[in-house]
Amino acid sequence: MPDIEWILLYLVLGALVGFMAGLLGLGGGGILVPLLTSIFTYQGISVDNAIHLALGTSLACMIISSTASIYAHASRGAVVWQMAGGMAPGIILGAFLSTQIAVNVNSAYIAIFFTLFMAFVAGQMFFNWQPKPSSKPATLSGLIAAGTGIGSVSVLAAVGGGFLAVAYLGYKNVNIKSAIGTSAAIGLFIAITGTVGYMISGLLVTSSNPYTIGFINVPAFLIIALASTIAASYGVRCSHGLPKACLRKIFAVIALILSIKMLIFWF
């Protein structure tokens, strides 16, 4: 087992991510990836493998958070299963292919991509930007194409796809509550496929690292997932008494700062 200080650090990190997820209804990839990258590097894992391990472990953690989120939204009838199912083939294809490509891409490029993507996400959250709705109805081919793009991008930044999915569903005239609920279902597809993909692509690369299965750090996954699940309920309670617009801006700034920190750390 890892040393007690790392276990405690995983607990704190999981509690932070879970609380923020419950508070704002957002995944924690923007927080997890840069911090886990630093943690794994300090543990002696090579810099080249640290970011892939952080991405894979973050996606594994999202399986738990996405499942809980789907249950909450589905119980309120806020998941448009037809659109989620239509996007699923593209999401699975895009997510799996991206994980296989990522292992052969220089980690510095992934760090740059992550920082730029999170800067876009932070701007979208800070200014609450949404595309204007389209008058054209969603088609199966369009859903598959959108799913492929969302799945491909999401596994390279370890986000559940919520930012992109909510924007796309809003563009297709899905109301915001149903868009958020449907994005949770989409996030589960991304998390499962991305986790499996990073496990497979990293089996030979991390075979000498203890407590890993491919690019998944098992102790980090288990501890963070447990802590985040417990802390999420407290975040949900607090969300009802605090202004979400202000909190979204705070989250956006934190995510951007951590992303830039990872970029500086890399170079």
Rank of each mutant, 00 (worst) to 15 (best):
I4E: 09
I4P: 02
I4T: 14
I7S: 02
L13Q: 05
G14C: 07
A15I: 12
L16K: 11
L16Y: 08
V17C: 10
V17S: 13
G18P: 04
G18A: 09
M20T: 13
A21I: 03
G22P: 02
L23E: 05
L23R: 09
G28Q: 14
G29M: 10
G30C: 09
G30F: 14
G30I: 14
L32D: 00
I39G: 03
T41I: 07
Y42A: 13
Q43C: 01
Q43H: 04
G44H: 07
S46H: 10
S46I: 03
S46M: 06
V47C: 00
I51E: 02
L55D: 02
L59F: 11
A60W: 06
I64Y: 11
S65F: 01
T67W: 12
A68I: 06
S69N: 15
S75Q: 14
R76N: 14
R76D: 05
R76C: 02
A78V: 01
W81Y: 12
G86D: 03
P89K: 04
G90H: 04
I91F: 04
I91A: 05
I92E: 02
G94L: 07
I101F: 15
N106D: 15
Y109D: 08
A111R: 14
I112G: 00
F113M: 11
T115D: 00
L116S: 06
M118L: 13
A119H: 05
A119T: 14
F120Q: 05
V121T: 12
A122C: 09
A122Q: 06
Q124L: 10
W129E: 06
Q130M: 13
P131M: 04
P133V: 04
P137V: 02
A138N: 03
A138C: 06
T139L: 03
S141W: 12
S141I: 13
S141Q: 13
G142D: 08
I144P: 06
A146T: 11
T148P: 02
G149S: 08
V153T: 15
S154E: 10
V155L: 07
L156N: 03
V159N: 12
G161M: 05
G161V: 09
G162N: 07
A165M: 13
A167I: 07
Y171E: 01
Y171A: 01
N173H: 09
I176V: 07
A185F: 01
I186Y: 00
A191V: 04
I192H: 13
G194K: 08
T195I: 06
M199Y: 05
S201A: 15
V205F: 09
V205G: 00
N209E: 12
P210A: 09
P210H: 12
T212M: 15
T212V: 07
V218C: 01
F221L: 14
L222P: 01
T229I: 04
A231I: 01
C238Y: 12
C238T: 13
K244V: 10
I250N: 02
I250R: 03
I250G: 01
A252F: 00
L256T: 07
I257Y: 08
I257F: 13
S259L: 06
K261A: 11
I264T: 11
I264G: 02
I264W: 05
F265C: 01
F265P: 01
